[in-house]
Amino acid sequence: MGNKGAKGRSLIRSDATQKIMAFGSLIVLIIVFSLSSPNFFKFSNIVSIVLSTAVNGVLAVGVTFVIITGGIDLSIGTTMTFASVIAGVLISFWKLPVILGVLGGLATGVLVGLISGTVISKMKLPPFIATLGMMMITKGLSLVISGTKPIYFNDAKVYSKIAMGSVLGKIIPGFDIPNAVVIFLLMSVVASLILTKTSLGRYNFALGSNEEATRLSGINVDKWKIAIYSLSGLFCGIAGILMSSRLNSAQPALGQGYELEAIAAVVIGGTSLSGGEGTILGTVIGAFIMSVLTNGLRILSVKQEWQTVVIGIVVIFAVYADSLRRRKK
């Protein structure tokens, strides 16, 4: 007990190490790619990296909440698509105003999360199974509703501006950063605040750390679980809008596979799959590592097949490094 101070400090140190490690690897990657190709560190390329991070990043940030509870959400990729298809139907088929379409898309995401959360907490299904089912359901529904064909937003020109326009460029001339990027960063900040400053965040960690003890502390565990899955669903909705806005169409066949990339980003960012630990900043860095790698390898003209192999190795290595750090503690 005498070394209380030392304990406190070592705690801070190990948390910091984690962030520095992840951030350090990101910087190293950027330096390596910049040195190997003059095309890498150009403003346009940087913007394209950040832009490609946005969708995966938003999904990853959302699912971070779920993973910290010790759960998993496999339906986030297809829920994203489902949300964009609903927005497409509302805007292009029913000719509703864009804003209603967007809200409809977001509400769809929340609804799917709400259902997953309810199935998991009330019917006591393992998250893996419940969300696997949800993945299939949303994938199927997207195809049914859209008639398996893409829905284009040609009649609503503003729709593509949601992601690709630049409000920031209007405010600060020359600073033409696409809205998608701004939305992604903004949502990350909001998520980080929710996770660290609010009761939802606190119970999120508590649940993942020891669910039984949380319940015995008089906390309505089911309610908070449902809220957390719904929040993750909301992020799927946001990702769906960004994605379809960027493509100017809702693509019903897309989506599956996105969940695994998002989960990879979360894990690279140091969030523990067994729950109770994790940060949004880590996830954001993880998402960037994934897209910097993809982008850099492409610029170095590494074949697509091989890019996947490299990323796979990175995921394994990152998680291994993180587990080493944990064990030392």
Binding site: R202, F205, S209, N210, A213, L216, S217
Partner: peptide
């Protein structure tokens, strides 16, 4: 409680 019911990560 006899069996501890604290939340380890908090």
């Amino acid at each position: 409680f006899q069996e501890f019911n604290l939340i380890p990560h908090l």
